[in-house]
Nucleic acid binder design. Structure first.
Lengths: 343, 343
DNA sequence: CTGAAAGCGCTTACAG
DNA sequence: CTGAAAGCGCTTACAG
């Protein structure tokens, strides 16, 4: 009704302290309880009241204080996502989907980068609990001390990318051992004889390696040659890896890499050395990131549905908020070997 | 003194609700004020008192509630970092450094992925203000409506990767126009005659393009041929870009790319087509990500010190918290052209 | 160096 | 459908 710029409330809002629920309530002529209901559950307030509140919010530029809201309701609408590195290609799809969908649902994402440090992991988990997050999404195992801390907290703990025997909360992932098996069978079916297995440091990569080697040896073959790389496993590790391969007494006929980026690097090195891929040396990646299908030659890889991992994790959080159904403790999203040109 | 497992407090802690300041204070025989001081400013409490509080915290497994702390102190110790995509290689170093250093300093990072959507940007900024973040770090311009919202909030607004004329808060970045200039001069100095300029959609990339074209034409040359790619600019865009290059009447002698990944893709395509790089066609990247130095051939690129951008932004937040010195509004971190094998 | 007490800005039974 | 009021768990002048 009145001109907005002539309005004293407006001046207050602009002048310094932010508008509060009280300001909105006073202006709309209702109690703060009603404004709170309108914001969190609009359909319970009467049409006419809702309209007045809507106007009051617009006029005051009110933005709720979620610190206060979270304290009062003991629901923070925040979830912590902890990964080792931002450049760990393997988690890209999971992270992108997770952050997008959580944000779209009005949940704030707290990002933590643990590296390979247990101390950083502990600090980040403590910080998450301090913020009273609704859930903590993490990609690895925990030390007993931190596990105890997590169990004491009401946050839902979700381990992604793996399926441990006894998850702390729930797990969304796949069997790395089985993935290793399948790669071994693929190599045998293609008639490769001398694989070279490059494993990144870390529990999951080791499980894949173990699965691969076990199946390979069970097939009556001699143990493969091996190498290891630091995490995050990157394109740039390929120079050393390839140099080592060339120094082997017997050159391998296929290099199995722990990531597509590393596989890409090995291909580049091999081509630069005048070798043909896959004729002279074949290459297998892992993760099926977008470059796997875009590289020349295209890269044989193992596809993991990272976006689905994200969605299942989010669904688990939602289910628990609804306090509905008893939850599954393991959600297996599987994997799929995608044969392309490189092997 | 007493066995921990026989301790009734311990049982309470494990049994459900988390320990609060009151629990710790009661157990240590001091007031909550003193415990609060010990936690936030340990040196102001007496040695003996500190020791008792330390024990009480350990025994109760107390973890402070930062929702309550933030509400009471109106300092959230949280900063929002908003970028378009997680896979936007160009921000990798900045993000990694930012998140690591903020976490190390006890600040929580809220991550937002805006895509190219103004609506998502607005929602995320509103969410950040709702959480009463101390600062918002953002990579682009804002619509007037959102800008007004930000100005009304007490959060420090930091625009990174660019130096706008009139930043909302402060800006930490470099001149994209100048970077374009320098690339043009580099091309001339190397004797290239027919550049093909591939620009990602977006204001910053366009500024580089404008700078490049202006300088190139000022040097008495005909305008370069051009192409554009979607953001985030990726390896995979290279197939189309290269196919277009081949269809040009006059093949360019150098392709200037908006990212190192795209440059890498163009090199792979060129090599697969039997061309030599840089003899038959040269390639320039942008960002100097790690692959630029690792690719074969290594990629000529423009180095931007992303980690320094992160550090300057964090320093600005700290300065303001100290309410010290009047702040610079622009922090220019510059850039540097790194000539390598590809051009 | 420490304590009593007010207050931060919300939410939520409870009652009507 | 709405309001009065207690309470969430901290911090911080103020006083001693």
């Amino acid at each position: 009704m009145t001109g907005i710029s002539a309005d004293p409330f407006e001046l207050h809002a602009g002048a310094g302290k932010a508008a509060t629920l009280d300001d909105v309530a006073a202006r709309a002529g209702v109690s703060t309880a009603t404004v709170s209901r309108f914001i969190n559950n609009p359909q319970v307030v009467a049409q006419a009241t809702a309209e007045r509140i809507r106007e009051a919010i617009a006029e005051t530029g009110y933005i709720p204080n979620l610190l206060a809201g979270g304290l009062a309701s003991s629901k923070s609408k925040m979830v912590a996502v902890l990964i080792p590195y931002l450049t760990d290609s393997i988690f890209n799809d999971t992270m992108q989907t997770m952050v997008e969908e959580l944000s779209a649902a009005g949940t704030t994402v707290m990002l933590g980068l643990t590296g390979v440090s247990e101390a950083r992991t502990e600090d980040l988990i403590r910080a998450a609990i301090s913020r009273r997050v609704d859930a903590i999404i993490f990609t690895g195992p925990l030390t007993p001390h931190v596990e105890a801390m997590v169990r004491r907290s009401p946050a839902l703990f979700i381990q992604v990318w793996d399926l441990p025997e006894d998850p702390i909360g729930i797990a969304v992932g796949f069997s790395h051992h089985a993935a290793g098996h399948d790669i071994a069978r693929f190599l045998m079916s293609r008639g490769y004889r001398r694989p070279h297995v490059v494993t990144a440091k870390g529990a999951r990569a080791n499980m894949r390696r173990d699965g691969l080697v076990a199946e390979w040896v069970a097939g009556g073959n001699a143990a493969p040659t091996e190498a290891s790389v630091e995490v995050p496993s990157r394109f740039g590790h390929a120079r050393r890896i390839f140099a080592e391969v060339r120094r082997l007494d017997h050159m391998p006929d296929v290099v199995v890499c722990g990531s597509d980026y590393l596989a890409q690097g090995v291909i580049v090195e091999a081509l630069a050395a005048g070798l043909r891929v896959p004729e002279d040396i074949a290459v297998v990646g892992f993760g099926n990131s977008s470059i796997a299908g875009e590289m020349r030659p295209t890269i044989t890889s193992v596809e993991v549905d990272g976006a689905r991992i994200a969605r299942e994790a989010i669904a688990a959080i939602r289910n628990r908020a609804g306090a509905a159904l008893p939850q599954e403790r393991w959600i297996d999203v599987g994997f799929r070997l995608v044969a392309r040109e490189s092997a």
